[in-house]
Simulated scan of single mutants.
Amino acid sequence: MEWQTDILGTDFESCGFEARGIDGVPRRATLVRHVPGSAQRPAVNGAVLFLHGWSDYFFNVALAEFWTQQGFRFYALDMHNHGRNLREDSTGGYVAHLDDYDAEIGTAIGMIRSGGAGNGEPEPLTLMGHSTGGLVAALWVSRHPGMVQFLVLNSPWLEMHGSSLVRRAAQLMVKPVARIRPLTVLRLPERGFYYRSISSSAEGEWALDEKYRPPLAFPLRAGWLSAVLSGHTRVARGLDIDIPILVLLSGASANGMIWRESMRHSDAVLDVNIMALRAMTLGRSVTLERVDGGLHDVFLSASPVRDDAYARLARWIRGFITDRGNTSATDAASDEGGQE
């Protein structure tokens, strides 16, 4: 495995690798790491691994810088059939079972731990996921207890719009097609409202590479939707995660087939009230933060709103991670921060 300068510039490196799942199929993923050239607070609080959403990739430099400034080593994983792994023959965004991500997540965590402090002590790891990546992260943690110590979810996709009844009806319709012809493209209405609100090529402020993050997302296939619905069912039954969890959501949703100005300061993808209810089924220690004016990715919102989101995240980090009793480490970080 060889690290090379990433598409995000000299402060980032990436490493492509293949991970073989329990089905024996090798899948290509890419791990990205933040390697700032300037002096930074020492990484005394462990590492963070970020999982992107569906039809997306890691591009948020500010998010990496935030975690680094908080005393973490920051990593992000472009999962298979996404982002940096896309090739001409890729089936963009497709996964037949959400468990198919297990091998690449496990491999990435192994790579992260191998690059740790090397003092013999296990390094605390925080897993962070956005949207579908949040669903994947929550399910992965529930199936691999003890592998990570903290979980942060940014607008996780934990349930379908409407209710569990909508999900069950969708499962009845999709499962037969997914079983026989999983790559069948479902002809559903396409909206680019969220992309319109974030991309600098539209009306947003973020530079997105359309090779990695298409405006109208990837084709929605039966096998993929069936996998997501199965994941939602598992969440609804309760995951019993026993580590601290932070869930960040917008304060409101704005759905519909016609563009509305409210979509500039609300979640135009998910029903945040349903997500808030489902968040309570994740585990025993769940902190829910509602960010007024937040977009679907609260850290891509307008500047004052994302400042609020980062402040809420920083407060949770202080409460659950940096004040967990590792006083010598946090004191060292504070001393170093005071010298900057």
Rank of each mutant, 00 (worst) to 15 (best):
Q4R: 14
T10I: 15
F17W: 10
D23P: 02
R27L: 03
V32C: 12
H34A: 09
V35P: 08
A43L: 13
N45Q: 10
F50C: 03
L51P: 00
W54N: 02
S55H: 09
D56K: 03
D56V: 06
N60Q: 10
L63A: 14
T68V: 15
T68R: 15
Q69D: 14
Q70A: 13
F72I: 03
D78E: 11
D78H: 10
M79I: 07
H80Q: 06
G83D: 04
E88C: 11
G93Q: 01
G93C: 04
H97R: 00
D99K: 01
D99E: 11
A103Y: 04
I105K: 02
G110H: 10
R113I: 10
G116P: 04
G118V: 07
N119P: 08
P124Q: 01
S131I: 02
G133M: 00
G134L: 01
L135R: 00
S142C: 07
R143K: 10
H144Q: 04
P145M: 00
V148K: 06
Q149A: 10
F150I: 06
L151D: 00
L151H: 01
L151C: 03
L153C: 02
E159K: 09
M160I: 01
A170W: 03
V177M: 11
R179N: 06
L183R: 12
L183Y: 11
L183P: 05
V185F: 06
L186M: 13
E190K: 15
S197I: 05
S197Y: 06
S199T: 09
S200V: 10
E203G: 07
A207K: 15
R213C: 15
L216Y: 12
R221P: 03
A222R: 02
S226K: 09
G231C: 00
T233W: 02
R237T: 04
I243A: 05
P244M: 06
L246Y: 06
L246H: 02
L246G: 05
S250F: 03
G251C: 04
A252Q: 11
N255T: 14
M257P: 13
I258M: 15
H265E: 10
S266N: 07
A268W: 05
D271R: 04
V272N: 06
M280R: 15
M280L: 14
V286A: 03
T287W: 04
L288F: 03
E289M: 12
E289R: 14
L295R: 11
L295Q: 10
H296G: 03
V298H: 10
F299I: 06
A302S: 12
P304V: 06
V305I: 13
R306Y: 09
Y310P: 08
Y310A: 09
Y310K: 08
R312P: 06
A314L: 08
I317P: 09
G319H: 15
D323G: 15
D323W: 12
R324W: 08
R324Q: 09
G325Q: 07
G338N: 14
